[in-house]
Simulated scan of single mutants.
Amino acid sequence: MPAHSIASYTKSARLFALYQSLPRSEADAVSLTELMQTYGSNPDHFTNERKNLENDLTGLNQIFNDVFYSNALIRVPAWDQNISGKTARFYIEASFSIDVLNEQTVFFWEMLDKYTANYLPVSFKQEIADKLTQLRRQDKDKFHQSPLGQWQDHLITLPSIVQAPTLDSDVLESIHQALLQNRQLRISYQNKWEEKPVQRMVYPKGLIFIDNMVYLTGFNPTDDHIND
């Protein structure tokens, strides 16, 4: 929260402070009256400060549209609707953030979504989807015209001749938790030249993606003297 009332700052500083003070969910959306509690504190200038608050909200929304190509600053009722006789409430879309957008960022998120999303936990996949939605609202045409963006026209994805096995979601979840929490895993392992699988306790280290297959890497202790 700002140390002083937002109304005491210059125009540019007011907009940034206002952006920081707005809630990030519709459930917490606030009215102009509620915003005035942090925006303006001088009762003698209340009318002028409230009008400035309305103008600043409109200006901030215009910046989001012009610079970030985003409708992240949401008004209920919507900006294009008449609010006569209604109490307007405001909030910022939760997935929005003022990130630095460059060629490498877009390329990274698109490749992550395309090649690894099927192996990630549901929460991770949703975060990737939210990030891509945010990036697509920004100046993506500029990225596609850049040298790195044009590489996408020369990338061809062919169906793999190696068919990945169907993995149980509970098994994947166990692997994810073991990796994130540094836990051991008990697995059933079978060499292709053996008739029956054996039970092993392994120390998982990470996942490797090759073609459309995913491999679990880790350590398999061979005796009772391994240093954990």
Rank of each mutant, 00 (worst) to 15 (best):
Q152W: 07
Q177C: 00
V202S: 02
P159G: 04
P159N: 08
I187F: 03
L179M: 00
S160D: 09
M213W: 09
E195G: 15
L180P: 03
P165S: 04
P147Q: 03
Q163G: 12
T166A: 13
Q177E: 04
V198P: 03
M213D: 10
Y189K: 11
W193H: 10
E173P: 03
T157L: 15
M201A: 12
H176G: 04
G218Y: 08
Y215N: 03
T157V: 15
A164D: 10
G206E: 06
I161C: 05
R186Q: 12
N182G: 01
L180G: 06
L207P: 01
L185F: 07
S174I: 00
E195W: 15
I175W: 00
V214S: 00
V198I: 13
L172N: 03
D170V: 12
Q199W: 13
Q184D: 12
E173K: 01
P159F: 04
P204T: 06
L158A: 05
L185C: 07
M201W: 14
N182M: 07
D168H: 11
D168F: 03
L148R: 04
M213S: 09
R183D: 00
E173Q: 11
T217D: 05
V171F: 13
K196E: 13
S188E: 11
R186E: 11
V202M: 08
L167P: 08
G206T: 03
S169V: 14
I210K: 11
G218A: 12
P147S: 00
L155S: 07
V162C: 06
I161K: 10
Q150G: 04
Q163C: 14
T166L: 08
N212Q: 14
E173M: 06
M213C: 14
I161V: 13
E194H: 13
P147K: 00
L207H: 01
M213G: 04
L207F: 00
L216R: 02
Q152I: 02
A178I: 03
Y203R: 12
Q163E: 15
V198M: 11
T166N: 11
E195P: 10
L158W: 01
N182Q: 07
A178H: 00
P204D: 05
E194G: 07
H154W: 14
R186H: 12
I208W: 05
G206L: 00
Q190N: 10
R186N: 14
L158R: 08
N191D: 11
K196D: 09
P197Q: 08
N182H: 01
E173R: 06
K205S: 13
P165A: 02
